[in-house]
């Protein structure tokens, strides 16, 4: 009776001029994004940037006020042909409508409705995560995350969106999650889009990263290519300011300590080499978390 239908290859998931307002409040503004098939994306942004809303709309769990979500060129909303290819794993809380279910019944529904559901994989994950068969609202936060993850992975959906999957997981559990995710990715080449606050830890898992800031897309490229464009430049304040003014650079972030200053700067390799050649200045690389704070911290000045 249970025949595992092999999932088709993933297709591009696109946000087409997506707008979303909650009442008068705009949450997403004219968003144009494409998630290419078969890659692991990180979706990062501050609280309220619109990550959850975006993921919800892209998977048909939320509706757009303007624009549309497209999968393989077809609209997602209320489209049976497309919906089976998408899965959105939400952050579950005890207040969720689904929290009154037992773990088993929840997953049973997944088996019933997800066209490519793999029950063997689900059983394997339940064992690996040591999930008890309790009511979801009786589970710890970490266990709730794991239930959500289990359903997402076992759905074998070609495009899987995960909203803060690591919420409530301790470090060991997080590492385990990344490992399981990468294993599944290597096995199936599914597209994964993962939103997270724990940026640096997850950075090495993301091939590409999308940064949202106040409902707009601020970056959408290969993780390491993005990070390569940023450096911390530090040195005596006067010299640093002179060097920056000379090249007409506006720093993204500034930190002052006495006469010493450090700035975060975006630019090209050539520029950084030039700056590094100057005696008084030190040029250092930034990691993804640093880049994110520089881009979305809105020039918070310190010192």
């Amino acid at each position: 009776m249970t025949t595992i239908t092999k999932a088709p290859a993933p297709q591009p998931l696109q946000a087409d001029k997506l707008c979303k307002n909650y009442g008068k409040q705009p949450v997403l503004q004219d968003l144009d994004l494409t998630f290419e098939p078969g890659r692991i994306y990180g979706l990062i942004g501050r609280n309220g940037a619109g990550k959850t809303t975006l993921l919800g709309i892209l998977s048909g769990q939320n509706y757009a006020t303007g624009g549309r979500a497209l999968y393989g060129g077809q609209p997602v909303w209320e489209n049976s042909a497309v919906l089976g290819n998408l899965h959105f794993a939400r952050e579950m809380s005890a207040a969720s409508e689904l929290a009154g279910l037992s773990v088993k019944n929840f997953l049973r529904a997944g088996r019933l409705f997800c066209p490519y559901w793999d029950q063997n994989y689900a059983d394997e994950l339940i064992k690996k995560f040591e999930l008890p068969n309790k009511m979801i609202n009786r589970l710890s936060r970490g266990q709730m995350s794991m239930v959500s993850i289990t359903a997402a992975l076992a759905s074998r959906a070609p495009v899987t969106l995960l909203d803060e999957p690591t919420a409530g997981l301790d470090v060991v559990a997080r590492e385990r999650f990344y490992r399981i995710l990468l294993d599944e990715y290597q096995r199936t080449g599914r597209t994964f889009v993962i939103s997270t606050h724990i940026i640096e830890e997850a950075a090495s898992v993301f091939e590409k990263v999308v940064i949202l800031d106040e409902g707009k897309e601020v970056a959408d490229q290969n993780t390491e290519d993005l990070v390569e464009q940023f450096r911390y430049i530090s040195g005596p304040a006067a010299e640093l300011d002179a060097a920056l003014a000379e090249r007409g650079i506006t720093p993204l972030q500034t930190q002052v300590l006495g006469g010493h200053k450090m700035v975060a700067v975006r630019g090209e390799e050539a520029l950084f080499e030039e700056l590094a050649a100057r005696d008084g200045l030190t040029v250092e690389g930034m990691n993804l978390q640093n880049v994110f704070v520089a881009l979305c911290g809105h020039g918070d000045e310190e010192g």
Binding site: G60, Q61, F88, A109
Partner: peptide, 9 residues
């Protein structure tokens, strides 16, 4: 809610 969560129209 449950069928909707799992992608049923």
């Amino acid at each position: 809610a449950l069928p909707t969560y799992f992608g049923v129209r």
